[in-house]
Design a protein around this nucleic acid. Structure first.
Length: 911
RNA sequence: GGGCGGUUAGCUCAGUUGGUAGAGCGCCACGUUUACACCGUGGAUGUCGGCAGUUCGAGCCUGUCACCGCCCACCA
């Protein structure tokens, strides 16, 4: 026997093991030969991470799809794996070293540090896998991959070399986004612009040949800047060519304060007369725009910062070049060299002010770039880095989506994709980190680069180049983590080897991911897939929203509003969490998660559990030889039709990625149709002594429950599997797994007559209950029912459902009559009038009021329809069936109104 | 500065070709029943953000405004 209550903790782990023991997750299982493949690659979580709500949503949706398709007979591969997550993982381990007061990574050395990370990965690397299992994910764990596995690393090297040879990867010295805390370059995408309150400093730059006089504006030009400290690296001042205020100064020089460098005033359209003073200082080595202006005018690039964002003036050939090293400047260098950038700002502003060179300071709000990992203010920094020519790779990837080879769901994300891809910049892929794929490039003594898949090949190339053996030095940088992620859909399938898996499962069917990594990941997989496989990596991209807290706030550790999915699983079970996430995953909306909602769906699981108990107690055992189409009893024919409609609804919704609708359909069916009505309606049959009827009903109850378990299984795999196994009354376990059962397909179980009859029955019961409650008839009281004016159909139906009506509506006796007895409570049901003869029990006045309200309600409905029908345009222009429908409604409403009027008259006659 | 999304019952949200406004939770009342109080039965609640337009008919289509949120963008 099933336990009295649903306790997921008691069986979830065990059920998961039974799936694993049966190798039920494995792709290409023996019995699936010839089946159409269905493949999903998991968005690889950070190998050392742990499950958060985003993972829970993302993987629930994938598991729903995967289980659905597996039951539909597809040969399913859900390819799992984890990501080495370069910066994130390196940071975690560095922090660990700090906490344990061990030597930092530099003191430790590269080899030892990397070994340390691998060790950490071995220790914590399977946490997330275990957590995904708790969630119920049916990944093919035997194929678990890691982005730094040998196979995937080989794919990375090959891609790098191939793209390099094709000219699509190159090395360049230009400004990058430099993180002075992490001491690495990062890509544009890893930079977050944050609105910040700052200042605009207006500085006076003395014009060469004039004696600077703060009182005389003709002796200087004012430039406005948000970053005064970078003025040490200024190599020009730009004004707009059409700006009358400055035209006469173009071609002249200014003497850069503090430094004494002579720098030109140039005319450039970049300068905006509306902004600041209209003249802008140009610091090509420390600003992306200035870099471009500098290139246009041949201005030198003078870097004045070190990697960790201190002033770097000495020794710095760039800085000292072309500057007269006066004693003052020498003193300045001694004073400021090595000072951090923001402290330097203060010093410089003070000095300028002291010399009368500071015109004014204005408050100013502007966007300041921050590193998304470190939070540090990003410094545009002049370095050598490796780049991918993303613009070229983007073209086929754009085209593939335009041509519908890959479809985004919801489609609106395609705009986002196009917009970004069409304006894509080259992708900086080198990182000055240690954890990751080291760049397969080696340098000769003269700096000549040899890009090759391994050291031997590089040496060979070098030998050919130099004519002799030379000692090469490998590039120390590693690749952006997303570089290896971009290859995920084919690298996990064995590429560059032409494996059977690659042939069978690429392109994959659907990618499920959050909108926040469309650029980081989806776009790049598209580019790499198109380039290396000449085919899209996936047919559909299902983009889901963010999970927020119940107030709509983004969950974050600092806000302390993080809901831990594992805690919810502990409290309510994995099924409840999964169902919640799926039910709330309406397209294009964020999910605001609340514990109450999860609790509600836990209750749903309990409801199902108890329905199964009821079935078990009544010997409702599935029978292999049972044909639902053969059912005779009306209520059985009806529930079969309902089940079939629900099957269609769930199937269609899942096919269209409408998870919330699918979940809603099965929820409604199970609770409000199967439990609320069907199980109640069959109780008289199960209690009765008609053996044939009981047998059919038991079989149908079991059959429909089985179908419901199947439809619900993708959402709630644990409880459904448990009930599937344990429903036999003698606790004999079914040996087949629900997860491997065949998804219900439509058959011809619809029966309009049964539907109409049960609909009538439900309306009757509901109507009587409603009126009883309204008239304060005690719930325990059984009352007589008189059916007046019934036609033959109704009479037959009443007779057929006599027991049920008595039971569900708390009726003592049912009689037919031509007219309702005087002083009874009356209801209109189709052509008949139902009467509860309660004269003396109920308050006639109250009943009269109730009837009047009913009459008003119907009356206003009629008035509404009349207004429509009176509108000649409506009658002439609306489609015939719509007009007809309104006429029909009016006729019915009028009939009801007439009967209610009669009822009221009879009641008043009784007074 | 561009772009996207949102605004529907107290709360969280559905509403797929325009044709009688829905669900869950919460709330109120009552608790008879061969599963279930993690339950049952009944009930209340909406000028579908504002305005204008298209249409016989608009929560849904168009325009516009307001507020909220997100994304992209190098602007001193």
């Amino acid at each position: 026997m099933l336990d009295k209550t649903y306790q997921p903790q008691n069986f979830e782990g065990q059920i998961y093991r039974s799936w694993e023991d049966a190798r039920a997750f494995a792709a290409e299982r023996g019995d699936r030969e010839g089946a159409r493949p269905f493949a999903i690659v998991i968005p690889p979580p950070n190998v050392t991470g742990s499950l958060h709500m985003g993972h829970a949503l993302n993987n629930t949706l994938q598991d729903v799809l995967v289980r659905f398709e597996r039951m539909r007979g597809r040969d399913v591969l859900w390819q799992p794996g984890t990501d080495h997550a370069g910066i994130a993982t390196q940071m975690v381990v560095e922090r660990q070293l700090m906490e344990r007061q061990e030597p930092n990574r530099r003191a430790m050395g590269r080899d030892k540090f990397i070994k340390r990370i691998w060790q950490w990965k071995e220790e914590s690397g399977n946490t997330i896998v275990g957590q995904l299992k708790r969630l119920g994910c049916s990944c093919d764990w035997s194929r678990l991959r890691f982005t730094m596995d040998e196979g995937l690393s080989r794919a990375v090297r090959k891609v790098f070399v191939d793209l390099y040879r094709a000219g699509l990867i190159y090395k360049d010295k230009r400004l990058v986004n430099w993180d002075p805390e992490l001491l690495t370059a990062i890509s544009d995408l890893e930079v977050e612009q944050k609105e910040t309150k700052g200042h605009l400093w207006h500085l006076r730059y003395p014009i060469e040949g004039k004696t600077f006089n703060p009182e005389d504006p003709s002796t200087y030009i004012v430039v406005a800047t948000t970053r005064p400290e970078t003025m040490l690296g200024d190599t020009g001042v730009a004004v707009h060519p059409d700006d009358e205020r400055y035209k006469h100064l173009v071609g002249k020089n200014v003497i850069l304060p503090i430094v004494g460098r002579r720098i030109p005033i140039v005319a450039d359209e970049y300068s905006d007369p509306e902004k600041g003073s209209g003249a802008v200082k140009i610091t090509p080595a420390h600003d992306f725009n200035d870099f471009e202006v500098g290139k246009r005018h041949g201005l030198p690039m003078i870097n004045v910062l070190s990697q960790d964002a201190r002033l770097l003036l000495h020794p710095n050939p760039d800085f000292t070049q072309g500057v007269e090293l006066t004693p003052q400047l020498h003193a300045t260098i001694l004073e400021m060299n090595g000072v951090f950038r923001f402290a330097a700002r203060k010093i410089i502003v003070e000095r300028l002010e002291h010399e009368g060179l500071l015109e004014k300071i204005e408050p100013h709000v502007h966007a300041i770039p921050h590193g998304d990992r470190s939070g540090a203010v990003i410094e545009p920094f002049l370095t050598d880095q490796w780049y991918v020519d993303a613009a070229t790779l983007a073209k086929p990837a754009i085209d593939a989506v335009k041509r519908g080879r890959t479809t985004f769901v919801p489609k609106t994300w395609e705009n986002t994709y196009f917009h970004w891809m069409e304006n894509i910049q080259s992708w900086c892929i080198s990182r000055q980190l240690w954890w990751g794929h080291q760049i397969p490039a080696w340098y000769g003594p003269d700096g000549q680069v040899f890009v090759a898949e391994d050291e031997a090949a590089a040496n060979a190339a070098a030998k050919e180049h130099y004519g002799k053996d030379e000692k090469l030095k490998r590039d120390e940088d590693v690749l952006d983590t997303w570089f290896s992620s971009a290859l995920w859909p084919f690298s996990t399938l064995g590429w560059p080897d032409q494996t059977p898996e690659l042939a069978r499962y690429y392109p994959t069917d659907v990618l499920v991911t959050g909108f926040d990594i469309i650029f980081f990941w989806v776009a790049r997989m598209m580019m790499m897939g198109m380039h290396f496989m000449e085919e899209v990596p996936f047919r559909d991209v299902y983009i889901h929203a963010l999970v927020r807290d119940e107030k709509g706030q983004k969950m974050s550790k600092s806000k302390g509003n993080v809901i831990d999915p594992l805690e919810l699983i502990d409290t309510y079970g994995a099924d409840a969490l999964r169902f919640t996430l799926a039910a709330m995953a309406a397209q294009g909306r964020d999910i605001k998660l609340s514990g109450a909602r999860v609790e509600g769906y836990r209750n749903f699981a309990t409801k199902l559990w108890n329905a199964a108990r009821f079935a078990q107690m009544n010997d409702c055992v599935p029978r292999a030889d049972f044909d639902p189409a053969s059912a005779h009893i009306t209520v059985n024919r009806w529930i079969a039709g309902e089940a079939e409609r629900t099957t269609a609804a769930v199937t269609e919704a899942l096919e269209a990625f409408r998870f919330n609708e699918a979940a809603g359909a099965i929820y409604h069916f199970l609770w409000h149709i199967y439990c609320d009505w069907y199980l109640e309606l069959i109780k008289p049959v199960l209690m009765g002594d008609d053996e044939t009827a009981r047998a059919e009903t038991r079989a149908m109850a079991a059959f429909v429950l089985d179908r419901a378990l199947q439809l619900l299984h993708p959402f709630m795999p644990f409880v459904t599997e448990e009930l599937w196994a344990k429903r036999a009354p003698d606790d004999e376990k079914r040996d087949s797994l629900l997860m491997l059962s065949a998804w219900p397909t439509h058959s011809d179980l619809q029966n309009a007559q049964a539907d109409a009859e049960i609909d009538w029955l439900i309306r009757l019961v509901t109507e009587v209950r409603s009126v009883r409650a309204e008239m304060n008839v005690p719930a325990a009281a059984k009352v007589p029912l008189v059916v007046a004016g019934a036609n033959d159909t109704t009479k037959t139906r009443v007779a057929a459902h006599d027991e049920t009506i008595k039971r569900l509506a708390r009726i003592e006796t049912i009689d037919f009559a031509d007219a309702p007895p005087t002083g009874s409570v009356q209801m209109v049901l189709d052509e008949a009038t139902l009467a509860l003869p309660l004269q003396g029990v109920i308050d006639i006045g109250a009943e009269s009021e109730r009837l009047k309200r009913e009459i008003d309600k119907v009356g206003s409905e009629i008035a509404q329809i009349d207004a429509k029908l009176a509108n000649e345009k409506f009658v002439s222009r609306a489609p015939e069936h719509v007009v007809e429908e309104q006429r029909e409604r009016k006729t019915q409403a009028q009939a009801v109104a007439a009967k209610l009027e009669q009822a009221l008259k009879r009641l008043e006659a009784a007074l």
